[in-house]
Design a protein around this nucleic acid. Structure first.
Lengths: 339, 339
DNA sequence: AAAAACTATGCACACGTGTTCATATAGGCG
DNA sequence: CGCCTATATGAACACGTGTGCATAGTTTTT
């Protein structure tokens, strides 16, 4: 009985050589048994696969990925805080789609900041691509990916550069839709409740808001910054509506903040929605259509976004040198009960 | 000028040999430069690291993980549908904690069923561990992991077996707390709105509910099954409250269903909560504490759960042969406005 | 001064796979 | 039979890394 040298630090994963020995074939044959379309006797393959199943063997994906040929099938997804419902819902869809085409997803999630060590660490893997979802991403990610020639797919903002593709909602048009929705309901003193002002999505929505308001011959009643969270919207709306009680229409840069604003307005401040205050959000998260919520909002279609991400990804993998693409998805006004 | 044979199928990632050549040292030295505590001249290391930075080199994690020594630092997380807010929030916390201790997270997310191909596929990687979060998981996962000696950490249900550790809320006690909370408010005709009846968590909560009701000298007014979703709770509560209008207290197996029940009760059915109907949920998702929601619920503490998962994981990695552990986390009654 | 301990460094091996290459066998066709 | 093609198979290599081993140089201890 052989004495084990290293006491099961890793319990000796079954290897192709083990299968070959037990099946009485060469190691090459075992490898071929798992390779579609390789020359191998039909009965022999069946025998090998059976022995492999008995031993619980499966090819080590690390060793396979080490091969220069072909791709590693590894993808990294950097996303924001998943307490944000939009990010959570879209992440689930992305993972499912990626798994469906045989890619494995490393997920990195940041509550606020993403340590550089994490970013550079995951780049230690020969990734097929990296997907950036959401706004705040350290700039060095872009530089690192460029240096390593790792394709970058960005969603939720537009990023320029070789090997970088972007898909993003037409934020300005969405914001304009919201403004028009408010005006159609007779609102004239309209305010903007923004997200982090340093994010592209916020800048675009803000600009779309301002342009649309002025195009209607009005002036914005106020602008204030939140942080894309329920709590941030709650606090910002309290300050805003207290100092500007004349406001009768509020466009919020995302749904979470819109719900926070509604909560503080109808609760603490005694306003009623939509009787004397209209609120419109952005994104159309699942909650927004709950009857008790019934939030009027601008749909930032998740299925369309994920579809486009996958399209860009496969195209980029097919031709890494292709010119960058930027896709703008169309927003849609969803009228419910808060405006 | 050298002609490239394969036209950038993978753009020749910079390798340790490249760095060694340019820095005028051996390849071993390069490897040692990136290894903490290895014997290497201080200046030499600095020089190597600088050259590496210029070339954009970083050690290939695949090749490193292939080494028998040490661990692969790969962890797979199988989770349910992330539209479920509890799953989403806890996933974000897990990923952050895992990243903090140097583990990379493969995430597999299922909306309902998880294809067996995905499960066996990810097991092609020499995982340090696999984390099952949530209820419905194909049984073969357990068999596969056992065969490959991959540690299994289960959260949200209890699973028995060698190398399997579990952490789960004390569901029965939580359900009993809810019942007592309802009774303390004078409710006597109390019903149970369950999740999928085949899930451990639902069975335990149901049993805790029944035992507590009977211990109080009452009989349950009704029991009905939902599916842990808002929509499922909505539909189930509509049927339940229509056929049993006498019900004055409702314990729901999770928060999402409780919100669905509240929506249909206060909307369509004209009930008022908590005046003539008390509702208590389970989990305490972030939304539950929003002022407009103010859901009374049983907290299934996420931070505590994740802490325990990490504790079990590190313990298991330290000693793979240690006996299985099962941790029950303590529920807590959070009284808000719906009961 | 001798011995011992520590530091520094290159060579060679191991990790587990996919695949090329050479070789061997079988089958179709003149 | 002789030629060509299609199929089958094992040996050998490449992927990129970490580290054991042997050796040499340097400092500390006896």
């Amino acid at each position: 009985m052989a004495r084990q040298v290293s006491p099961a630090l890793r319990p000796h994963r079954v290897t192709a050589a083990d299968v070959a020995r037990k099946a009485g074939v060469s190691r090459s044959a075992v490898s071929r048994a798992f390779t579609e379309g390789a020359y191998l006797d039909k009965d022999k393959r069946a025998h090998i696969l059976q022995v492999a199943a008995e031993l619980g063997y499966r090819p080590n994906a690390l060793a396979a990925g080490l091969q220069g040929r072909g791709r590693s099938n590894l993808v990294a997804i950097m996303t924001g805080d998943l307490v944000n419902h939009y990010d959570g819902e879209i992440l689930a869809r992305m993972i499912r789609q990626l798994t469906a085409i045989g890619k494995w997803s490393f997920v990195l999630s940041a509550g606020g900041e993403m340590p550089e060590a994490d970013v550079t660490g995951v780049l230690g893997f020969p990734l097929d691509a990296m997907i950036l979802r959401g706004g705040s991403v350290p700039d060095d990610v872009v530089a690192h990916c460029a240096k390593l020639k790792i394709p970058l797919i960005v969603s939720g903002r537009i990023l320029e550069g070789p090997g970088i593709d972007s898909v993003c909602c037409d934020n300005a048009r969405g914001a304009a839709m919201a403004v028009q929705g408010l005006i159609a309901k007779g609102r004239r003193r309209i305010a903007y409740l923004g997200g982090q002002a340093d994010l592209t999505s916020d800048r675009e929505r803000r600009k779309g808001f301002l342009d649309a308001v002025r195009a209607a011959g009005l002036e914005p009643a106020a602008q204030v910054d939140g942080d894309y969270s329920f709590e941030g919207g709650f606090a910002a709306a309290r300050a805003l509506l207290s100092s500007h009680p004349e406001i009768d229409g509020l466009f919020c840069a995302n749904d979470a903040m819109a719900l926070g604003a509604q909560a503080v307005a109808t609760g603490e401040l005694g306003r009623s929605v939509p009787e004397n205050l209209s609120i419109i959000g952005f994104d159309d998260i699942a909650m927004a259509r709950w009857p008790m919520i019934a939030l009027s909002t601008i749909r930032n279609d998740m299925d369309m976004t994920v579809t486009q991400i996958m399209r860009l990804l496969t195209a980029r993998l097919k031709d890494p040198e292709a010119p960058s693409q930027t896709i703008r998805t169309a927003p849609e006004f969803i009228a419910r009960g808060t405006h």
